[in-house]
Simulated assay, not measured.
Amino acid sequence: MTVNVQATGHPDPTRTPASRVRRAVGEQAAGMLGAFVVRLAPRLFALVDVTDEEDGPIVAWGLQFDDHVRVESCDGTLRGEFSSGDRVLWLFSYQAAMVRLVWCTPATRPPWLL
C-alpha cells in the first residue's frame, strides 16, 4: 500500500485503497442516480406567441409530467395545472392569437436509460 504524506505529516486520504473503492462506488451510484432522475424528469416546454413582434415571443413555461401539465405565464399572472398540453393551448389561445407549444427537451430517452 502506498500512502502520500503531505507536508503536515498526515497521510493523503484520497490515496488509500479504501478511499479509491469508495470513490468508485460513489461514482457508479451517482451515475445510476443521474440516469434515474433523467428518466423520471418532466419535459420542459414553452408556449410561444408566433404573432407577437413587440414583446418577447414566449408567453409561458411549462412542465409535462406523466399525468398532468403545470404552466406559469412569464408575467406571473396566470398559472395552473392541466390534464394535457392541449388544454393549456386552449386556455392560452385566449391570451394570444397564435400560440404554439415548443418542446425544450427531447421526446425520446437515450436507449441506455430505458
Results as ranks from 00 to 15, higher is better:
Leu47Tyr: 03
Leu33Ile: 07
Gly31Met: 04
Gly26Phe: 07
Thr51Asn: 09
Thr51Ile: 06
Gly26Trp: 01
Asp49Thr: 02
Val59Tyr: 00
Arg23Ala: 12
Ala41Cys: 03
Pro42His: 11
Pro42Phe: 00
Leu63Asp: 02
Gly34Ile: 00
Glu53Leu: 15
Glu27His: 06
Trp61Asn: 06
Phe45Lys: 04
Gly31Val: 04
Glu53Ala: 13
Ala30Pro: 05
Leu33Tyr: 12
Phe65Met: 07
Arg43Ala: 09
Ala35Phe: 00
His68Leu: 09
Arg23Thr: 13
Trp61Met: 14
Ala29Ile: 08
Ala41Gly: 07
Gly56Asn: 14
Glu54Ser: 10
Val38Pro: 09
Arg23Phe: 09
Asp67Ser: 08
Phe45Val: 04
Phe45Ser: 04
Val25Tyr: 10
Ala41Glu: 04
Leu40Tyr: 08
Ala35Val: 01
Leu33Arg: 14
Arg43Pro: 02
Val48Pro: 03
Asp67Gln: 10
Leu44Ala: 13
Ala60Tyr: 01
Gln64Cys: 05
Val25Ala: 15
Ile58Val: 15
Glu53Asp: 11
Asp66Leu: 12
Asp66Ile: 00
Gly62Thr: 03
Asp49Trp: 01
Val38Ala: 15
Asp67Cys: 01
Glu27Met: 10
Leu47Asn: 02
Ala30His: 08
Asp52His: 09
Arg39Thr: 06
Glu53His: 12
Glu54Thr: 12
Ala35Thr: 03
Leu63Cys: 05
His68Cys: 07
Gly62Ala: 02
Trp61Leu: 11
His68Tyr: 10
